[in-house]
Computed example of a mutant assay.
Amino acid sequence: MAKSPYPVINPGGGPMGKVIIALVLIAIVTLVIKYPSDAARWVHGLGSVIDGLVDFFRTLFG
């Protein structure tokens, strides 16, 4: 097997990646529980960004 030309962190390799993922998930759950209106605004904003990207690609390739 050929050596990878991109020496980056192996995804899923080692406990540090799992710890970081667990901390991010805990932060998201805490955000939703403590500040549900802020979390809803962020999700709504993310939906607006996705809608904008879809419109962009439709005009680009349509």
Rank of each mutant, 00 (worst) to 15 (best):
F56Y: 09
A22L: 07
N10Y: 13
V54M: 04
L53R: 03
A39Q: 09
F61M: 02
A27E: 13
K18C: 02
R41F: 14
P11I: 06
G17F: 01
F61W: 02
P7L: 12
G13I: 01
Y35L: 05
I20F: 08
I50P: 02
V29C: 03
I26K: 05
H44F: 15
S4Y: 04
I50Q: 10
T59P: 03
D38Y: 11
L23H: 06
I26P: 00
V32N: 11
G47I: 01
S4T: 07
P7I: 07
P7D: 15
H44R: 14
L31G: 13
N10V: 13
D38A: 14
V43P: 03
H44M: 10
I21Y: 03
G52I: 00
I28M: 10
P7K: 14
R58M: 10
A2N: 09
L60F: 09
V19L: 10
S48T: 09
N10R: 10
Y35H: 12
L31I: 04
V19E: 12
F56A: 08
D38G: 12
A22T: 14
D38M: 10
K3H: 11
M16G: 08
G12T: 07
I50N: 11
I20Q: 13
V32C: 06
Y35R: 10
S48K: 13
L60N: 10
I33H: 10
V54P: 05
I21G: 05
L25M: 14
N10D: 15
G13C: 08
G45M: 01
Y6K: 09
V19F: 08
K3Q: 12
G62R: 03
I9N: 02
L53Q: 11
V43K: 05
I28Q: 08
I50M: 05
